[in-house]
Design a protein around this nucleic acid. Sequence first.
DNA 1: ACACTAGGCTAACGACGTTAGCCCGTCAAG
DNA 2: CTTGACGGGCTAACGTCGTTAGCCTAGTGT
Lengths: 186, 186
Amino acid sequence: MAGGVAELLTGRMTEIIDAARDLLEAGGPEAVTMRAIAERLGIKAPSLYKHFPDKEALEAALVAAGYVEQAEAFAAAGRSRNPLAALARAYRRWAMEHPHLYMLMTNRPLERDRLPDGVEAAAAAPIVKACGGNPDRARAAWAFAHGMTSLELANRFPPDADLDAAWRSGIDALQAPHATQPRSTT
Amino acid sequence: MAGGVAELLTGRMTEIIDAARDLLEAGGPEAVTMRAIAERLGIKAPSLYKHFPDKEALEAALVAAGYVEQAEAFAAAGRSRNPLAALARAYRRWAMEHPHLYMLMTNRPLERDRLPDGVEAAAAAPIVKACGGNPDRARAAWAFAHGMTSLELANRFPPDADLDAAWRSGIDALQAPHATQPRSTT
DNA sequence: ACACTAGGCTAACGACGTTAGCCCGTCAAG
DNA sequence: CTTGACGGGCTAACGTCGTTAGCCTAGTGT
């Protein structure tokens, strides 16, 4: 059984995940209840446990599907010229189109053994490439994008903030163009 | 009415918030139940509703207290030379010391009218100052710090990632607009 | 003396995740 | 055919959660 969670999804499982996702995107996280998922499928809540051991496992599958979809959205942007800016746009865009799913994917610890291996790494790969393979800078850029996105979704910026300008400012700074000296301040 | 939530806290209210906070820091968010808070105070859960209209209001008060405390921790760092780096260290440090509270403060929307006015702004002010008053760059820096912190707390970085290096890389890039070395031979 | 109020209490409701146990259809092996 | 395993439904129920209704008591201002 090694492989952990990388088990294949039976048809019924994907139906369940789709139902959960519809509820999530329509009504936020508190709309995703076992009873509501079941009702949407015309079955009763306990039947869901024939397919997933518990709600957390179901959510983990939802998150995994999200990462796959996200990775697809990023792949195209990664091939652009000025890939960092394009990726940032794609990142923000995807999150704004699926705000609740994005938060489910990033908020809270969510132990990694619930996720198929490498699913996160695949989504992150284009960013690393866009940072010229510098993993520290790539993580910084990822953190910046996630931070902007998370704060925007959580409504943490003042209403008059110019978020486009903030994104530009950050991307601009984090670009790894000239003067990529690891030691800059003497 | 005006003033919103800026009402003063009666003695009993701060006791309740302290109890909630103890539970939060000790057992994570799901340990914070109305019954558990009450038990810690030697009373019963419904009595809490004599002091807070609902659990969300109680959590909002907890979050507000967190912002105040955070702002205090940042104030000192803001007065350092190289304030951006010092603030980043303080930011990360505070979050690591209060991980659950930090997540409660930043995750999920949490409508702002629950918070006393300006409590967020006060915490953000030193960052703006450290960015030479450039608000876009300040927001980018804030987002970077929050992103790094959030991803670290959510266990999103691979175990072998050098987070100190990533922080350094980001701070370095975001420092001042154009390679504004503090003392470049002026 | 009396009413008001702050702040406790018990009982209970409905929604939630979850478990136990039953049942029925399909289908391969005898 | 019969049979037996099993996938995938079902009902009933449990314990926990936030929350409400309604009662009671000690202190206080008039």
